[in-house]
């Protein structure tokens, strides 16, 4: 519980940095920090396997992919982004703050009123997870496999430079 109180502000701070930093590479690295702190949160909550998956997939693949595409596109318009900021920040706040208010209100309305019993926190059993993954959820696994294949082909097709073929 104390660890939660330490970890949660760190996650929020890292996410704040990720959305606030004007320099894109800093934003991407702070996103990686925030995602790895969420992985620590999963470990803390007892979902060990998911924490490791979160770390390897999000930090190892997605964040690295984002950093690499920042390297390729080399965004140089930091100054323009800063100059445009006041209006966009105002518009963003007008849209985001009501959403936050509604979400927090609904959470406090449904949770805060009555006591949620914490008698039996669930245990994470990797063997059970694997068993049900390939029995109960086998169709979903196959669908994800087909989707990943399609994504791989599609991403390779998109990322290919068609102009290079002529030379």
């Amino acid at each position: 519980m104390i660890a939660l109180f330490i970890l949660i502000p760190l996650i929020v701070l890292a996410a704040l940095g990720a959305i606030w930093k004007a320099r894109p590479v800093h934003a991407a690295l702070l996103l990686a920090l925030s995602l790895s702190l969420v992985a620590v949160l999963y470990l803390l909550l007892g979902a060990d396997f998911l924490g490791l998956i979160q770390f390897s997939v999000y930090v190892g693949a997605v964040a690295v992919l984002i950093v690499f595409s920042l390297l390729i596109t080399r965004p140089s318009d930091e100054t323009k982004e800063i100059a445009r900021r006041p209006q966009s920040i105002l518009a963003g706040l007008i849209c985001a703050v009501p959403v936050l208010a509604v979400l927090v209100y609904s959470v406090s309305y449904s949770i805060g009123s009555d006591e949620v019993s914490e008698s039996s926190p669930s245990q994470f059993e990797l063997a059970e997870l694997g068993k049900s993954l390939f029995t109960t959820y086998a169709p979903a696994v196959m669908a994800v496999a087909v989707m990943l294949t399609a994504v791989m082909i599609g991403a390779a097709l998109f990322a290919r430079d068609f102009n290079q073929r002529e030379s």
Binding site: A28, I66, T73, D77, R85, S88, C95, A96
Partner: peptide, 15 residues
């Protein structure tokens, strides 16, 4: 909400 704010305010597609 932080993610929503980033989506609404950022200009760079990667961000």
């Amino acid at each position: 909400t932080l993610g929503l704010f980033a989506v609404l305010t950022r200009r760079n597609a990667i961000l």
